[in-house]
Amino acid sequence: MIPFEHIMILSAAIFLLGLIGLFVRKDALTLLVCMGLLIMAVGVLWIAVAKSFGEMLGQGVVLAIIATAFVQGCVGVMLILKLQVHKPSLQVKQFTELKG
């Protein structure tokens, strides 16, 4: 059987990669991709929990998470589209109107 700790390590690694990408990348689309990675990692962990501890709750939660992630992606794309009206660039550093 697949040891739970190993799946946990995998999930953690993907999560960390997504997080680093979130802080490092400048493109809005890549940011969205990294967020999707974060959610993916969490989903993996939940499925592992479902498998290892026999809790079917895990699969249910992942269902919800997937739906959320999809919607988040769509909303993110919509936000990018709206931002493009003001500036035709995907670089996040160019949208600093909130700078105080």
Partner: peptide, 23 residues
């Protein structure tokens, strides 16, 4: 699929491929 969550896997793949297409 390996972790015996096939239904979840199908839904997951469908939705996320769609998402990537949107991107």
């Amino acid at each position: 699929v390996l972790l015996q969550a096939s239904a979840i896997a199908v839904i997951y793949m469908l939705l996320f491929c769609l998402l990537v297409s949107i991107y």
